[in-house]
């Protein structure tokens, strides 16, 4: 006998009456059914500062920073590898800190300085980290590369700023640069081509030049 599957319907029906707990909130177990505020997506005006340039956009509120960069500003250097914070290809710098741009809404980043790979350097005017990636062949297919480079730049800054990592031997001592520190801190950027060994060499060279 065939088994009928209708989970989607069940789920929706239950969600209306059952409610779930949020990641950041406390909605009680039983909630009132209420019409959604709008069938149509809410559009909103957003002002983003990217690579020193200000952009005014009208976007669907649901737009992530990554999709705003890629689909609206056509800054496609930031890559979508997983869209769930599991790969690091979308890494950009926000106010100097590296962030997964797929897990933040564009609208949450108004007033912040966003730097993408395009803002670090261009083919004609490469950032030292970009140069080092070429020299040490710190990439293969190139898809994770912008994220690796944004992360790489930020990681050297984090080490300089004394931010500890999982492999920092003593939390009460200053943080020092090492291969192990680089590897641990870069672990949020997956490279399936497996250029890791070369990326460490590229970063070490840049760190050495920075002194």
């Amino acid at each position: 006998m065939p088994i009928l599957h209708d989970l989607e319907l069940n789920r929706r029906d239950l969600m209306v009456g059952g409610g779930t707990l949020a990641a950041l909130t406390a909605v009680p177990a039983v909630v009132q059914a209420q019409p959604s505020p709008a069938g149509a997506p809410a559009l909103t005006k957003v002002s983003l500062t990217v690579n020193g340039q200000s952009h005014d956009l009208e976007i669907d509120i649901r737009t992530t920073l990554l999709d705003a960069l890629r689909e609206r500003l056509h800054l496609t250097g930031s890559k979508k590898g997983c869209d769930h914070g599991q790969c690091g290809a979308c890494t950009v710098l926000i106010d100097g800190r590296r962030v997964n741009s797929c897990l933040t809404l564009a609208i949450m980043n108004e007033g912040m300085e966003i730097t993408t790979i395009e803002g670090l350097g261009t083919p004609e005017n490469l950032h030292p980290m970009q140069e080092a990636f070429i020299k040490h062949d710190g990439y293969q297919c190139g898809y994770c590369t912008p994220g690796q480079i944004c992360s790489g730049v930020a990681v050297l800054g984090e080490i300089k700023a004394g931010i500890p990592s999982h492999v920092t031997p003593d939390l009460t001592q200053p943080v020092t640069l090492s291969d192990a520190e680089i590897r641990e801190r870069m672990s949020g950027n997956i490279c399936r081509c497996g250029a890791y060994s070369n990326i460490v060499e590229a970063m070490t060279e840049v760190a050495g030049r920075q002194g």
Partner: peptide
């Protein structure tokens, strides 16, 4: 608003919203 959620970092909530595991209005 019973369908409201707070969002701060968003690193878990947006992940779940994309999959419609979380569906805040």
């Amino acid at each position: 608003n019973p369908d409201a959620k707070f969002i701060a970092g968003g690193t878990n909530l947006l992940d779940l919203m994309k999959l419609e595991i979380e569906t805040p209005a």
